[in-house]
């Protein structure tokens, strides 16, 4: 039992922290608006091998643990990296779980990062996956099309409808292009659930990093800004609001790590339950932390010149692509209490 990173884990985290500090200053985030994609940053990231990390080494990937992926995503989230990273990692991890995914002609290119993939977290309707995160820039989309889990290669639109988070969202047609069926029926549903859980885990990590950084920005700003002859950080109302964020941020960091660790230990059902929890909690924490940090900037917080509004918008936009969180709470309830109408099962958690 240890809630702190091992030396190896710290090395992984520090390496990505350095990478993003060097390569993704906030100017990169701003320049990538409104599409929300920075191809030059992706090219740099390819040099680190990160795009292939989620694929086992025996299939040519980096063979990273789920916990390593979480560490990567936390750092990406801290700097708001404008990349479809969670989507690409979840998609490639899923492809590597199926023979037809591994056999897809562009599999190696996805591992290399030359080709970009996006996991669609919501099932498609009538053959169209709507507002897929990363969908505007991905060459390959992995999605649930009725009772089939498919990977479809087609031209990335490279433009997104203007949106809250400046995220590369797009509708993707799953019935045109190069379509590979990864699984059918119950197997497809199970693989899809697993993919969604992976995406939730990675997005939770990104949101946790985002929230932690937003709190730092809030602290830095309130220590600097003076009103009534003192730093506004000296006012208790401000302090208490900032202090309230610490427990939830620490908490989601631990919960996300635990979900990853549980996946690495091979307990799939438990790790999916924890990933759902980590996702829901991280989304709320990121929302609250960015709201507070923005609020304590006063009027400057809402001006485009200040960075905190970039954090505020992504905190809401990244998780909302899964749909109303209340629906996810219902799915979580099914895991915890059994489906509606079920006789008594043990309360998990």
């Amino acid at each position: 039992m240890d809630l702190e990173l091992t030396t190896d884990e710290k090395t992984v985290r520090d390496a990505f922290a350095r990478f993003f500090a060097d390569r993704c200053p906030v100017s990169v985030v701003r320049d990538a608006e409104p599409l929300g994609h920075a191809p030059a940053l992706w090219a740099r990231l390819r040099e680190t091998g990160a795009p292939g990390m989620a694929v086992p080494d025996k299939h040519g990937g980096g063979g990273a643990t789920a916990l390593d992926l979480v560490l990567l995503m936390q750092e990406a989230g801290r700097v708001l990296a404008p990349l479809p990273l969670a989507e690409h990692l979840a998609a490639t991890r899923t492809l590597a779980r199926t023979p037809s995914g591994l056999a897809a002609p562009w599999f190696a290119s996805l591992v290399d990062g030359d080709t970009v993939a996006a996991a669609a977290p919501r099932p498609a309707r009538d053959g169209v996956a709507r507002l897929v995160p990363g969908g505007a820039v991905a060459d390959v989309v992995v999605a649930l099309d009725d009772d089939q889990l498919v990977a479809v290669r087609s031209d990335a639109p490279m433009e997104a409808p203007p949106n809250h988070a400046s995220a590369p969202l797009a509708d993707r047609d799953l019935r045109t292009g190069e379509r590979v069926v990864l699984a059918d029926g119950a197997e497809a549903a199970a693989l899809f659930a697993r993919m969604v859980a992976d995406w939730q885990l990675l997005t939770a990590a990104a949101l946790g990093g985002l929230a932690a950084r937003a709190l730092e920005i809030g602290v830095e700003y309130t220590l600097e800004r003076r009103q009534f002859d003192r730093p506004i950080a000296a006012f208790q109302a401000v302090q208490q609001g900032l202090a309230d964020l610490v427990g939830p941020i620490d908490g989601v960091t631990f919960l996300t790590a635990r979900a990853a660790w549980t996946q690495d230990e091979g307990d799939q059902a438990e790790s999916e339950r924890l990933a759902s929890m980590a996702f829901l909690a991280s989304a709320e924490v990121a929302r609250d932390a960015t709201y507070a940090a923005l609020h304590y900037h006063g009027g400057y917080g809402v001006t485009l010149e200040y960075d905190i509004q970039l954090f505020f918008r992504r905190a809401r936009g990244w998780p909302l692509v899964l749909g109303d969180p209340e629906d996810e709470y219902l799915r979580l309830a099914d895991r915890l209490f059994g489906p509606v109408g079920a006789a008594g099962t043990e309360v998990a958690g």
Binding site: P248, F254, L255, A281, Y329, A333, L336, A348, G349
Partner: peptide, 11 residues
């Protein structure tokens, strides 16, 4: 109830 379960996990 699911919300309470999440809070409990974090606690």
């Amino acid at each position: 109830l699911a919300r309470i379960a999440v809070d409990n996990e974090i606690t």
